[in-house]
C-alpha cells in the first residue's frame, strides 16, 4: 500500500510522535512528527489528502472515495500536492535531509509533468502563454468549470 521511505530509525510507531519530557505547564502540546515517517506514493497521497499514513485520520461518515482519474491533470496535481505537503513538513522539520531529498526529487518530476501538461492543454500560468505561437491563456475551460468533455484531461 505504501513504501516506507524512512531511513532514520524511529522511536515510536508511525502514528505517534515525540513529546518533551517534563514539559512545562500551561502551554499546549502536539507531538512532533518523527523523521522518517512512512509515506504514500503521490497518487495515494492526493487521494487521501496527506502524504503521511500516520496523519490520515478520516471521519466515520462516507469514508470511501479518492478514486482519482488517471489523467495528465490528476498526475500533475498529485506531484504538486506532494511538494505542498513536503513543503509544510519541511517548514517545521528543516533539518530532515531525507525529506528535503524527496522534495527535490518531486520538484524535478513536477517540472517535467508541467511541461507535458502544457504541451497538451495550454499554459498553466499567464507567463507560460508567451511560449506559444498565439495567446492561449484565455482558452476554456477554466479550472472551476465542469468539463465533461475534458474529463480525460
Amino acid at each position: 500500500m505504501y513504501s516506507d521511505n524512512g531511513t532514520t530509525p524511529r522511536g515510536c510507531p508511525d502514528a505517534n510522535g515525540l513529546m518533551p519530557s517534563c514539559a512545562p505547564l500551561a502551554v499546549p502540546y502536539v507531538p512532533f512528527q518523527q523523521e522518517g515517517s512512512q509515506k504514500y506514493d503521490q497518487t495515494e497521497a492526493l487521494a487521501n489528502g496527506t502524504l503521511f499514513p500516520g496523519l490520515n485520520l478520516p471521519f466515520h461518515v462516507k469514508v470511501k472515495g479518492g478514486d482519482l482519474p488517471r489523467t495528465a491533470s490528476a498526475e500533475l496535481q498529485a506531484l504538486q500536492f506532494v511538494i505542498v505537503e513536503l513543503g509544510l513538513y519541511l517548514d517545521t522539520h528543516q533539518d530532515d535531509q531525507e525529506a528535503f531529498a524527496l522534495f527535490q526529487k518531486y520538484a524535478a518530476l513536477a517540472e517535467e509533468g508541467k511541461r507535458r501538461y502544457e504541451a497538451m492543454y495550454g499554459p498553466l500560468t499567464q507567463m507560460a502563454a508567451a511560449k506559444d505561437a498565439a495567446y492561449q491563456w484565455l482558452n476554456d475551460p477554466w479550472p472551476w468549470e465542469y468539463d465533461q468533455k475534458g474529463a480525460g484531461k
Binding site: 499546549p28 502540546y29 502536539v30 507531538p31 512532533f32 512528527q33 492526493l46 487521501n48 489528502g49 496527506t50 503521511f52 496523519l55 490520515n56 485520520l57 478520516p58 471521519f59 462516507k62 469514508v63 472515495g65 479518492g66 505537503e85 509544510l88 513538513y89 517548514d91 517545521t92 522539520h93
Partner: peptide, 17 residues
C-alpha cells in the same frame, strides 16, 4: 474528504510550530 484531511495536517504543523 480531501479538504477535511488538510485541516488535520495543518493542525499538526501549527502544533509543531
Amino acid at each position: 474528504r480531501f479538504l477535511r484531511e488538510r485541516e488535520v495536517v495543518h493542525f499538526q504543523r501549527f502544533g509543531e510550530a
